[in-house]
């Protein structure tokens, strides 16, 4: 699981680096919000898989929905609209 998460986050970072080298300028709070988003996503995934082992699926779904979907989507939307300057 950790391997898949690592690959997903690595791909995300690689994509961001590629975009910043090709015209995107992201301001500082954009980076902060993306960091928070990524941490929140990982946290939600951890809670989901931890809850499978704990047989606490309600908490698992709640946590995954909140931390891995809702929060990253909200923060991502803010970043998308307010933090990225596309020069190309």
């Amino acid at each position: 699981m950790n391997l898949i998460l690592g690959i997903a986050i690595g791909l995300g970072i690689a994509w961001l680096i590629y975009k910043t080298k090709n015209g995107w300028v992201i301001n500082w709070f954009g980076w902060v919000l993306m960091g928070v988003s990524a941490s929140s996503f990982v946290f939600g995934v951890d809670l989901f898989f931890g809850s499978i082992i704990e047989h606490e699926m309600r908490a698992g779904w709640m946590g995954f929905g909140l931390f891995s979907i809702v929060l990253p989507v909200v923060l991502g939307t803010i970043v998308w609209h307010y933090s990225i300057v596309r020069s190309a």
């Binding site: 946290f43 951890d46 809670l47």
Partner: peptide, 8 residues
């Protein structure tokens, strides 16, 4: 009394 399988 929780288990410790989730960082939460």
């Amino acid at each position: 009394s929780k288990q410790d399988k989730a960082a939460l």
